[in-house]
C-alpha cells in the first residue's frame, strides 16, 4: 500500500469502516511508515479531543421551565391528535419552513359548464390547462381575483406559549370519509354546482427570496397535475418575498368523487376570512405536498420523522361547524 492510499483510508480505518481485506494491508503499512503512523496518531488525537469535550451544562432552572411549558401545553383545550390537518401543516412548517403563506384568495371561474358539473367539479384536463411554467398569463376564464389582503402579523410570543392558529377547517382523507346521515350537514360539494360549477381556488404564497427556493417550488408545482402556477412576482430587495400565485383546479370527472378542495358555498362569499383561510390551506396542501415530495427525494434522512407518520391526502376541506361524520371519529 502506498502512502496516498493509506491517507485516503485512514479515516475509514478509524471509523471501523475499512473492509477487512484492506485493513491488514493498512496496518502493515502503518507499522512500516513513520509518517503515516504519525498522521494516524494525529487523527486519533483530534477524535480524542472531541470525545473529551465537556458537555454543555444547561441552566439550573431549564427543566422546571420546560415542565411549566409542558403543563401549559397539556391544558390546551384541543389536543393536536384531533386535528389531522394541523399535523399536516405542522410538518409542512418544518419541512418547507420557508414557505410562508400570506394571503389566499378565492376565485370563481367561468360560466356554468357541462353536465359533468352537476355532479361535481368541472372538467379541466391537464392537457387543456397546458404546461404552465413559472410565468404564464392568467386565463381569460379567471375573471376575478379577490384583492389580496395581507394577514396581520402575529405578535411574537415566547415559544412555549405561542398560540396555535385557529383552524376552522379540517381535512378529510378519502379512506376516512363517510357521508353525514344528514345531507344538510354534508359538505356542499355538489349541491350548488349548478350555479357555480367551475371553481378554482387561487392562493398567494410568499416565499423567501432565496436564490433557488422559489424556482424550485415553481418547478415542483408544475409537476402537480391539478395546480397551475399563474405567475410569480419577485420583487427586488433582500427581504421582499417572492409571491407565487397558483390555482388548484379540479380536473376531470374523477375528481367529482374525490375533489382536492371543497369550498363551502353558503355564506362563504361574505366571509372573506374564510376565503383567506381556504386559500391558505389550499396553498399549504398543494404546495407542501409537492415540495415535500421533492424534499424527501433530496433528503430522506431529514424527512424521516415526517415520513414515519405521513400526512393524509387532503381530499376535502370542510368547515368545522359543518363537520361530517367520518370513520376517524370526529
Amino acid at each position: 500500500m502506498e502512502c496516498r492510499e493509506c491517507r485516503e483510508r485512514m479515516q475509514l480505518y478509524l471509523a471501523e469502516a475499512l473492509p477487512a481485506r484492506w485493513a491488514a494491508a493498512f496496518e502493515e503499512h502503518i507499522a512500516q511508515c513513520g509518517e503515516c503512523a504519525r498522521e494516524l496518531g494525529s487523527s486519533r488525537e483530534i477524535i480524542e479531543l472531541l470525545q473529551e469535550m465537556p458537555a454543555p451544562v444547561p441552566p439550573a432552572d431549564l427543566a422546571s421551565r420546560i415542565k411549566a411549558a409542558a403543563s401549559a401545553a397539556i391544558i390546551r383545550p384541543e389536543p393536536a391528535a384531533r386535528r389531522p390537518l394541523a399535523a399536516y401543516l405542522k410538518f409542512a412548517g418544518a419541512s418547507a419552513a420557508a414557505l410562508l403563506l400570506a394571503v389566499g384568495t378565492l376565485t370563481l371561474l367561468g360560466p356554468p359548464g357541462s353536465k359533468h358539473d352537476t355532479g361535481g367539479p368541472s372538467v379541466t384536463p391537464v392537457a387543456a390547462v397546458g404546461h404552465a411554467k413559472s410565468v404564464v398569463s392568467e386565463p381569460a376564464a379567471l375573471r376575478s381575483v379577490v384583492t389580496a389582503v395581507p394577514q396581520p402579523a402575529q405578535p411574537a410570543l415566547p415559544r412555549a406559549t405561542r398560540a396555535k392558529p385557529v383552524r376552522r377547517y379540517r381535512a378529510v382523507t378519502a379512506a376516512g370519509t363517510r357521508r353525514s346521515r344528514s345531507p344538510a350537514r354534508a359538505v356542499p360539494v355538489h349541491e350548488d354546482a349548478s350555479t357555480s360549477p367551475r371553481r378554482a381556488v387561487t392562493a398567494t404564497a410568499s416565499l423567501p427570496p432565496s436564490s433557488d427556493f422559489g424556482p424550485t417550488v415553481v418547478s415542483v408545482l408544475d409537476r402537480a397535475p391539478n395546480v397551475r402556477v399563474l405567475r410569480t412576482v419577485r420583487e427586488e430587495g433582500a427581504c421582499v418575498p417572492v409571491t407565487l400565485v397558483c390555482a388548484a383546479l379540479r380536473t376531470g370527472p374523477a375528481h367529482a368523487s374525490t375533489p382536492d378542495v371543497v369550498v363551502p358555498t353558503d355564506d362563504a362569499a361574505e366571509d372573506f376570512a374564510a376565503h383567506t383561510l381556504i386559500g391558505t390551506v389550499v396553498a399549504n396542501a398543494v404546495v407542501n405536498r409537492y415540495v415535500r415530495e421533492a424534499l424527501i427525494e433530496s433528503d430522506a434522512t431529514l424527512m424521516s420523522l415526517a415520513t414515519s407518520a405521513p400526512p393524509p391526502t387532503i381530499n376535502h376541506l370542510v368547515r368545522e361547524d359543518e363537520a361530517v361524520e367520518t370513520t376517524d371519529g370526529w
Binding site: L62, I66, A69, A73, I74, P79, A81, A87, R159
Partner: peptide, 21 residues
C-alpha cells in the same frame, strides 16, 4: 439557542406521546 430548542424538543415529544407517535 439551546434553551429554546430544548424546550421545543420536549414539547414536540409531549405532543407526539399524546398522539401515540
Amino acid at each position: 439557542d439551546a434553551e429554546d430548542l430544548t424546550q421545543d424538543v420536549f414539547l414536540k415529544v409531549l405532543d407526539a406521546l399524546r398522539q401515540s407517535g
